[in-house]
Amino acid sequence: MSPPAIGGNLVEKESTIARILGAGTAGVAELAIFHPVDTIAKRLMSNQSRIASASQLNEVIFRKSASEPAVRRFFTLFPGLGYAAAYKILQRVYKYGGQPFVRDYLTTHHGDSFNRTFGKGNGKAIMAATAGSIIGVGEVVLLPLDVLKIKRQTNPEAFRGRGVMRIVRDEGFGLYRGWGWTAARNAPGSFALFGGSAAAKQYLFKLSDYNSATWFQNFIASIAGSSASLIVSAPLDVVKTRIQNQNFEVKESGVKVIAKMARNEGASSFFKGLVPKLLMTGPKLTFSFWLAQTLIPAFNKMM
Rank of each mutant, 00 (worst) to 15 (best):
V60Q: 08
S113P: 02
Y83T: 07
F74W: 08
R116N: 11
Y105N: 09
L21K: 10
P4Q: 01
A70C: 05
L278A: 06
E12K: 00
V11P: 07
I150A: 15
S222K: 00
R19I: 05
F173V: 13
R160H: 15
Q153N: 14
N186H: 10
T241K: 04
S288H: 13
R185E: 10
P144G: 15
D104K: 15
Y210I: 06
A32D: 05
S269Q: 06
L193Q: 04
Y87T: 07
G98S: 07
T154S: 15
K151C: 06
F34Q: 05
V11A: 13
R162N: 02
N211Q: 14
G196C: 01
L31H: 11
R166Y: 07
K251H: 09
L230G: 11
F270C: 03
A23T: 04
N58G: 12
K95I: 13
G195Y: 01
A292V: 00
H35S: 09
Y210K: 13
R152E: 14
M45S: 10
L193P: 01
T107M: 06
Q99I: 04
G172N: 14
M280Y: 05
I134V: 14
L291D: 05
A52D: 13
H110I: 01
A292L: 02
V250H: 14
M261T: 08
D237S: 12
L81K: 12
M127C: 09
A183C: 00
R177E: 01
H110D: 07
F205P: 02
V60I: 02
M302N: 10
G97L: 00
R103S: 15
G8C: 05
K272L: 03
A128T: 08
P276L: 04
P156T: 11
F287N: 01
N245K: 13
A18S: 14
Y203P: 03
Q91F: 12
R50N: 15
T108E: 10
A199E: 01
G119E: 05
L207C: 08
A198M: 00
F118R: 04
W179G: 06
I220T: 10
E59Y: 03
N186R: 13
T39E: 08
A70N: 11
F78H: 11
K95R: 14
I258P: 00
D237G: 09
A84R: 09
V37C: 12
G225H: 06
G282E: 00
S197K: 12
A84P: 02
P36I: 01
I40W: 03
G196D: 01
V168K: 13
V250S: 15
A198Q: 03
P235Y: 02
N218A: 04
Y87H: 13
G7F: 05
G82Q: 13
R72V: 09
A200D: 06
K284S: 15
K88F: 08
A129V: 03
I223M: 07
K251A: 15
D170T: 04
G189Q: 12
R103D: 14
A18L: 03
K64H: 14
G178M: 00
E265H: 10
G27W: 04
R185Y: 07
